[in-house]
Amino acid sequence: MTTTESKTPDLTTAPPRLPGALRLGLDRTVIELKTFFRERDAVIFIFAYPVIMLGIFATVFGDQTIDFGTGTELDFAAYFLPGMVATGLLLTSFQNLAISISAERDDGSLKRLRGTPMPPAAYFLGKVGSVLVTSLVQMILLFAVARFVFDIAMPGADGWTTFAWVFLLGTASGAVCGVAFSSLPRSGRSSSAVVTPVVLVLQFISGVFFTFPSLPDWMQQVAALFPLKWMAQGMRAAFLPDAAKAAEPAGTWELPMVAAVLAAYLVVGLVLGVKTFRWRRRYDG
């Protein structure tokens, strides 16, 4: 301490090395995961939700089957699984980030971080990392319950490939849309009241709880404007036997369209997220 004054000029010409964004992104991921799994609300209504819903639906409709009119019959539980996969991804990416970032903005966490030398990229890397880990663990749990409790068949290699890209694209677009949407709630306290109904309505109109073709035409058309319908469709392509595509509105899985819609949401969400992101509350001036 006593000799620093004579050394000071060196320090200003050669500033100390700052920790890198990537390493800090990892640290942020760990902190985000700890925070997420310590909040009971988040664990039940975001992480465990698809597993709970699968359990309820598979139990209630356990003895029913769906006939695709092509001689292929499918257990309702098996038909229901892809919808729960898509829902789980939407929750862990979109709902999770929209609520948590909105709350962090309101309680001053974001402002505090902005006052440190942490690079903003590290914050977003931490969010991405935690969403990825959370949704992967969620999927593993969901598949384990589906396979071992409800005896639902898992897809083959082709199915897993489809799952992989729909998972990545769906989670990424859900996450960036969640970041953008987080600016909408007026306060942290209102954030889950604003976000949850949006997600719930999407679940109903996107054919997550019912077979999609059984929804009215106009509802199918509205749902087609939002990503959940396409994520569910992509997941059905991954998990259901090929013959099941006869029941889709187009009679095929429309995978290129699934990719296009999710990619469009990724781009739009990214642009909106970057434009609207604030480190401080709206009324902070």
């Binding site: 500033p15 100390p16 090395r17 700052l18 920790p19 390493r23 800090l24 640290d27 902190i31 440190t116 030398p117 942490m118």
Partner: peptide
């Protein structure tokens, strides 16, 4: 401990 990681010294 987490905050300490943001700083060079």
């Amino acid at each position: 401990h987490h905050a300490a990681k943001f700083y060079p010294r």
